[in-house]
Computed example of a mutant assay.
Amino acid sequence: MDDHDPKEELIETIFRNSTITVVGILLAISLGFITHWATNPVPWQFYDLFAVVPILVGIALQMRALRCCST
């Protein structure tokens, strides 16, 4: 029950390392942005959730992509 296709080409190490670097940088920028926004002294409003939820979903997807690329 192996799902691996023998014709499937492996990802080259250079490409994989570059992808990990790019996703890591984007994740750091996203986490820095949300941290800066969370520590802002201006009180949060309910309508801020409409912006925060997609950002947090994006961060979760970036973390998933980083985990999948590194294995």
Rank of each mutant, 00 (worst) to 15 (best):
D2H: 09
D2Q: 10
D2W: 01
D2E: 11
H4R: 13
D5C: 04
D5T: 08
K7V: 02
K7S: 10
E8C: 05
E8M: 13
L10K: 05
L10H: 01
L10Q: 03
L10V: 01
I11V: 15
I11F: 11
E12I: 05
E12Y: 07
T13M: 07
F15W: 15
F15R: 13
F15C: 07
N17L: 13
N17V: 05
N17I: 04
S18G: 07
S18K: 08
T19V: 12
T19P: 01
T19K: 12
T19S: 13
T19Y: 12
I20F: 09
I20Y: 08
I20P: 02
T21Q: 12
T21R: 14
G24V: 03
I25T: 14
L26R: 06
L26T: 01
L26N: 09
L26I: 01
L26E: 10
L27K: 02
L27S: 01
L27R: 02
L27G: 00
L27V: 02
A28T: 12
S30I: 02
S30M: 09
S30K: 05
L31I: 15
L31G: 04
L31C: 10
G32Q: 05
G32V: 07
G32L: 06
G32Y: 06
G32M: 06
G32E: 04
F33N: 09
F33S: 06
I34L: 15
I34N: 06
I34K: 03
T35L: 13
T35G: 09
H36D: 07
H36Q: 12
H36Y: 14
W37A: 10
W37F: 15
W37T: 13
W37G: 02
A38W: 11
A38M: 12
A38S: 08
A38R: 11
A38P: 02
T39V: 15
T39C: 10
T39R: 11
T39D: 04
N40M: 09
N40D: 14
V42Y: 11
V42W: 08
P43E: 10
P43S: 07
P43M: 08
W44K: 15
W44Q: 15
Q45F: 10
F46V: 04
F46P: 00
F46G: 04
F46H: 06
Y47M: 06
D48L: 08
L49H: 13
L49Y: 13
F50N: 00
F50I: 02
F50L: 01
A51H: 00
A51F: 00
A51L: 00
V52S: 04
V52W: 04
V52T: 12
V53S: 10
P54F: 09
P54G: 08
I55H: 09
L56M: 06
V57G: 10
V57F: 13
V57T: 12
G58R: 03
G58P: 04
I59L: 04
A60Q: 13
L61V: 03
Q62D: 11
Q62V: 03
Q62W: 06
Q62P: 03
M63N: 08
M63P: 00
R64K: 15
R64V: 14
A65K: 07
A65L: 14
L66R: 02
R67L: 05
R67M: 04
S70C: 01
S70M: 00
T71I: 09
T71R: 06
